[in-house]
C-alpha cells in the first residue's frame, strides 16, 4: 500500500520536472533544457514570471542583508 501511495505521489508531483522548473527560474537551466515547460513559461508573458522572480529575490536579499557572514569555503 505504501508503494502504491508513493507511486501516486511521484506521478502527481513529477519531481524531476519540478526540479527543472525551479532550476530554470533560478537561472541554472535554459528553457530549452526543461522537459515539457509549463505554458506560462513559453507564452509571451514569460517575462512577467522572470520579473516576479527577480523582485522576490531582491526583496529577500534586502530583507535579510546586514547580517551576512563570510562564505565557509573561502577559508578552505
Amino acid at each position: 500500500m505504501l508503494n502504491a501511495l508513493l507511486e501516486e505521489v511521484d506521478t502527481r508531483m513529477n519531481f524531476t520536472r519540478f526540479c527543472q522548473i525551479v532550476e530554470y527560474l533560478a537561472g541554472a537551466r535554459d528553457l530549452n533544457a526543461v522537459d515539457d515547460p509549463p505554458r506560462i513559461l513559453t507564452s509571451s508573458y514569460e517575462w512577467v514570471v522572470r520579473c516576479c522572480v527577480w523582485v522576490v529575490a531582491l526583496v529577500l536579499i534586502y530583507a535579510f542583508s546586514g547580517q551576512t557572514s563570510k562564505f565557509i569555503y573561502i577559508d578552505f
Partner: peptide, 8 residues
C-alpha cells in the same frame, strides 16, 4: 540567466 543565478 547570469543575473538570475547570482540573485538566487
Amino acid at each position: 540567466r547570469g543575473i538570475s543565478r547570482i540573485l538566487t
